[in-house]
Design a protein around this nucleic acid. Structure first.
Lengths: 138, 138
DNA sequence: TATTGTTATACTCTATAACTATA
DNA sequence: TATAGTTATAGAGTATAACAATA
């Protein structure tokens, strides 16, 4: 597998971590996309639908359904952005903040467990590669 | 974003490259999963459904639908594996080989374009990290 | 009995295009 | 006219459980 495509390895790793993540967080009863959205909202900063969509690689039309469920469950709120009422600001509720914090903690735990044996510069290299692959797709 | 989760960056990069890939290969009229499956079959070695599923992180039940479409389009064949007729060997047809080769070439091109400016050890580090993240999810 | 793959079901994700409200 | 987001529609991915064929 040494000569395998980085992009194919990327998708392999994504599937594996996604599956592990939903398994570890099964009590939350959230889909992978919902976990992804909350994980990206975890820093607490308000974001518009477009901004969140860019962060997680999802189109606004897709995000609508995901946000509908998160809102119905009381994890986020949606409100028009002051100054431009076309845009919708997404914010975490207190409950959503707790859930997002748990998600971030689980992400950190899984990463620590997975990357424990690797040198720090491998992880730095990986971040650079991931960012480059994200950029080329814009 | 320096402190962002590697796993969240992973999913971001996956979405972006997947989107770019389906765009560059739009003439093939294949979904991301179909491209992924063919890309993994490109080396020509016969694989069972389970083996392919493990390689791309998809369950057999999901793979069935993907393989149905690829078979209907004449890109793969399915046949019982000699010696264990429960298992199904997937093989590329001549047409499938051509398509898979085109996919591999596109993968290589996109990777070269994305990673051109990065040092080789960053890419090596990324491969190690991706493999570690894949392993932790098993 | 266990394993491989398929089928059935229900839900989620996705792309696209049309639509509403606001700018 | 252009932009932000939602809605509508159709197709594809997903998990789970039940099933048939083979071991």
């Amino acid at each position: 597998m040494k000569n395998d495509s980085v992009i194919l390895e990327l998708q392999r790793a994504t599937h594996a971590t996604l599956h592990l993540l939903t398994t570890e967080l099964v009590d939350l009863d959230l889909t992978a996309s919902e976990i992804n959205a909350l994980g990206n909202l975890a820093d607490g900063t308000g974001r518009t639908v477009s901004e969140l969509g860019a962060a997680i690689g999802t189109r606004p039309a897709t995000l609508t359904g995901i946000l509908d469920r998160l809102e119905r469950r009381g994890l986020i709120t949606r409100a028009p952005r002051p100054g431009d009422r076309r845009a919708v600001l997404i914010a975490l509720t207190a409950d959503g903040r707790r859930t997002a914090t748990l998600i971030r903690r689980t992400l950190r735990d899984v990463e620590q467990r997975a990357l424990a044996g690797l040198p720090a510069d491998a992880v730095r290299g990986a971040r650079a590669v991931l960012r480059a692959l994200t950029e080329v797709g814009r």
